[in-house]
Design a protein around this nucleic acid. Structure first.
Lengths: 234, 234
DNA sequence: GCAATGGTTTAGGCGCGGCTAAACTCAAGT
DNA sequence: ACTTGAGTTTAGCCGCGCCTAAACCATTGC
C-alpha cells in the first residue's frame, strides 16, 4: 500500500479552494495552448481582473507561480504538481460518479468541480483503487498519475479533420456543457462509440456522423466537431 | 425517481459551511440532552464565545434559530431540517465510505465531516440508493430519512448498565475518536458483534466484556462503556 | 441585599477573496 | 513620435467568519 512515487503528495502549501482553482485554471489554459494572461484567467474563473492581480501576488508568494509585471504567468514546479493533484481528483471523481454511482454523464463535471477540493489523499487512493487505477476519465481525458505523469495517447484527431468515409472510435470529448453532453449521449456519441464520417461540409459548416451502435446519423457543427477526438481505424 | 416527501430538500436558506456546522452542532447538543448554550457551542466548535454570539445573530436572521438574549438557543423548524439534512449527509457518507470503499472505521468520521457540506442532493440520493436506503450508519447512529423522520430503535442500553452474565449485540458506539475506534475494532467490538458481560466492577470503574467472535475478553473503563449501546438478548 | 463569578455580549480588528473606479503600461497604427 | 486602446495594476472598499479585551448581565452564596 501507499505510493512511494507519489510526486503529487509532496504539494502541501497553504491551500484553499481559491488557490486550487487558480492554479488549476492556469494549468488548463496552458494545456489548451492559451496564454494564462490575467484576462484569460479572469474570464475563465468569472472574476474581475483586479481580483486576479491580487491572487497573483499571493500565488507568487506561495511559490506556485512565477510572474513579471504585465507578463503572462508561468506555473512553478510545485504549482504544476498542485494543479495535477486537483485535476487527478476531478477526473477520478468523474469516473467514479459514472461507474460506481451511475450519475449522468452531463452532471458529473459540476459535482466533481466541488468535490475535487475536499477529498483526502486517502479517499483519492481508495477511489483510484476501486476503479483499478484508471488512465482516462468518462470524457476521455487523461488522468494524472500519482507520479505526476500523464497517460499518453497517440493518433487521435478531431472529428472535423477526418475525411468522409473514414471512421474510428470516439476517444475524447472536450466539452463539459451539460446540454451538449446530453445531446451527444442521446445520439450514442459517447466515448467508446464506433463512428464513421458520412459527410464533411465545410461550406455549410457541418459534419455528418454515422453511429454504428444505434444505426443513426447525426449532423453537428464544425465547432463541436473540433472538440470531439477520434482514434482512427488502422 | 425523486422524492415527493423529501422534507429535507425544502431547506434552501443562504447556506455556508459555518452556518451548517453551527446548526448541526446545536442539533447534536439537543440530541445529547445538553443545553445549546453559547459556551457549549463554542467548546464543541472550538471557537471563541464572542464568535458564537456573532453567528447567533446571523442564524436568527436566517430564521434557523430562535434566541432571547442570555438564554439558550432553540432551533426553528427550518433550522432542524437543515441540521437533519447535514446529519443525513454525514451518516450516509460514513456508511458509503466503509461499505463501498473499504475505508477504516476510525477514519470515516473526519472524511464525512468535510464532505457532508459539499455533496449535492442528487449525489446524496445516488449514495442512499447504492446503499439500499439504509437506516443506520457504521457507528449504529440512525440516519435521518428524506421525510425528516429518524429511524427508531427501542430497547438498547449502555454496556455499563448490563449485569454480568447478560449479553447482546453491540448496536451503537457513541464515540468518534479514531484511537478508541481502532482499539475497539482490534478487539472485535464492532457494531453487530455479539458480546457477554463478564464482570461489572463499579469500584475499579471497569467492565469486562467477552466477545463471542474471536473468543476474547476485554476490560474497558465505565466512561467508554457508557458510550457503547447493546441490544440485549430477549 | 449584595458582591462574586461565570456566561454573554460589545467593541474593535484581522485575513481572505471578492468588488469598482481610476491610474497606469505597453504595443500598435497613423 | 504620438495617440489610442486593450490589458494590468493600484486604491479603497465590502462581507464573512474568526479573534482578543473589556464590559455587561444574572445567578448564586453569604
Amino acid at each position: 500500500m501507499g505510493s512511494q512515487l507519489s510526486a503529487l503528495r509532496s504539494v502541501v502549501t497553504p491551500r484553499s479552494v481559491a488557490v486550487e482553482d487558480y492554479v488549476k485554471c492556469i494549468w488548463t489554459l496552458e494545456e489548451m495552448g492559451e496564454e494564462p494572461s490575467g484576462t484569460a484567467i479572469a474570464a475563465k474563473l468569472e472574476v474581475s481582473p483586479a481580483s486576479v492581480t491580487g491572487m497573483g501576488r499571493k500565488l507568487v508568494q506561495l511559490g506556485l507561480v512565477e510572474q513579471e509585471p504585465y507578463r503572462p504567468w508561468r506555473l512553478t514546479a510545485s504549482g504544476r504538481l498542485l494543479a495535477l493533484e486537483i485535476v487527478r481528483h476531478h477526473r477520478l471523481l468523474e469516473l467514479f460518479l459514472v461507474r460506481s454511482l451511475g450519475m449522468g454523464w452531463d452532471r458529473i463535471h459540476a459535482e466533481a468541480e466541488v468535490l475535487e477540493h475536499h477529498i483526502s489523499e486517502e479517499l483519492e487512493e481508495l477511489i483510484a483503487a476501486a476503479l483499478g487505477n484508471p488512465q482516462f476519465d468518462p470524457h476521455g481525458h487523461p488522468i494524472p498519475q500519482p507520479d505526476g505523469t500523464m497517460p499518453e495517447r497517440t493518433g487521435i484527431i478531431p472529428l472535423v479533420a477526418i475525411e468522409a468515409g473514414s471512421g474510428g472510435v470516439i476517444s475524447q470529448v472536450r466539452d463539459e456543457t451539460p446540454e451538449v453532453l446530453r445531446f451527444l449521449a442521446e445520439r450514442g456519441m459517447l466515448v467508446g462509440a464506433t463512428i464513421t464520417i458520412r459527410e464533411q461540409s465545410p461550406l455549410a459548416g457541418t459534419v455528418t456522423i454515422f453511429v454504428a451502435d444505434g444505426d443513426l446519423e447525426t449532423t453537428i457543427g464544425r465547432d463541436l466537431a473540433a472538440h470531439i477526438d477520434v482514434e482512427v481505424d488502422a
